[in-house]
Design a binder for these strands. Structure first.
Lengths: 226, 226
DNA sequence: CCTCAGTCAGAAAAAATTTATAAATAACAA
DNA sequence: TTGTTATTTATAAATTTTTTCTGACTGAGG
């Protein structure tokens, strides 16, 4: 779980880094708005702690941009700032921040808010199994079954199916699948996805079961919800 | 959008009701924990404003129960309470509340927090589907339906319809359509647009439905608003 | 060995574009 | 109005292109 701290005061960065690392998070930091934007693109953190008053591009502006960008729309953002005025708080939240913490803040409360925001973003976390239609994936035992039939999946097929089942009903592009299943800086061909889709289908539909994976031509694939 | 207010002081309920209704929410209320639980089951609100100190079953306990219940795991909860101590705030958030507001609070800030929490819960709200007349386009699942009938569109028809539905009631020239749907440096004949319009019409009006695409002679086509 | 990931290449399927022709509409003159 | 003509759009069929499917092959690693 990586958290990007966007803050220009080194002392504050260190305070946050210390607390976050104690909670087991990876921490990256950026001292100003421009670097923040680059860091978000490059490191794809799981959450951003964003100071309002930072050089170059303001926190508010960054937040607005993230919310407009399809790719980062759901990236959790907590705004941190010295401005405690109510109107500022309202503005911070309305611009799309997930939460708002005023300086000076208590580290324990900030950590609680971080946990709360992350818990929301990942409502599946904590769940030990996924169930879509008649397909069940046991994330603890790493076993998958369709109906009463146990399925044997290779590691990649497993991750692929999991990625699908965490996003049922969504059409996912090959690029999204490669990023999510293979990892972001892995170079493999687009066609590789096709092949694994085929293998997954083969196992999933061994009996005459209906195909739950829908091909959306020129876009990608979708695991059907119902 | 229905919000359940769980609060035992009538004056506070009225204050909240007034503010919420001004923002266009439906409001239900429950004076204690037991009634709250029933109200959640029966009315299935979209969000709960939960006072910590209420009779019978405490707010904390209700929150805990909701978080354990598969059915209500994702129901947004904002805790409201007189207790402003940091340890209480941490506890409120860690028990699974989506946000925490201490009394006395400013109505404007509470409303901003409500909007923020609802926005999160509904990441689909931000233009993930288009609806014009009885035609619905789901941009996440890539599914199009007219009335209750599902339609099958090829990639180009899909993009074309999307382009139209994003600009209902506007007459679009073939050139505009080619730029918008095909891309700006693609050379294809004008007639190609006609062909795709025809295919789109065919699918859209398979039943005896009225044609929503109006031909504007010597200009182009228009997707009718109503 | 055995399993599995990745690549490739040809087959198959689906969809896009062009072409040719028919139909519709507008413009205009009688 | 009524024909006539020119222009524009509709439609089906043919062709081409794009995209996906599929089986087979290779090599890595247990």
């Amino acid at each position: 779980m990586k958290i990007l701290v966007v803050e220009d005061e080194p002392a504050m960065v260190e305070l946050l880094r210390y607390n976050l690392e104690s909670e087991g998070f990876d921490v990256a930091s950026a001292p100003d708005g421009e670097e923040a934007i680059m860091a978000i693109e490059e490191q794809s953190p799981d959450m951003v702690l964003l100071d309002w008053m930072i050089p170059k591009v303001s926190g508010i502006e960054i937040c607005r941009r993230l919310r407009r960008d399809q790719k980062f729309r759901n990236l959790p953002v907590i705004m941190i700032t010295a401005r405690g005025e109510e109107s500022d708080r309202v503005r911070g939240l309305d611009v799309g921040a997930d939460d708002y913490v005023a300086k000076p803040f208590s580290p324990a409360e900030l950590m609680a808010r971080i946990r709360a925001v992350l818990r929301r973003g990942n409502p599946n976390a904590g769940g030990e199994s996924l169930q879509i239609a008649d397909v069940n994936m046991d994330l603890v035992a790493y076993k998958v079954s369709r109906g009463s039939r146990e399925l044997h999946l290779g590691p990649t097929e497993f991750k692929l199916l999991r990625f699908f089942m965490e996003r049922p009903g969504r059409v996912l592009t090959r690029e999204q699948l490669l990023d999510g299943v293979w990892g972001q800086n892995v170079y493999v061909e687009d066609r590789t996805v096709d092949v694994h889709i085929r293998r997954l289908r083969k196992v999933l539909n061994e009996n005459g079961d209906v195909d739950l994976i829908r091909t959306v031509r020129a876009v990608g694939y979708c695991f059907e919800k119902a």
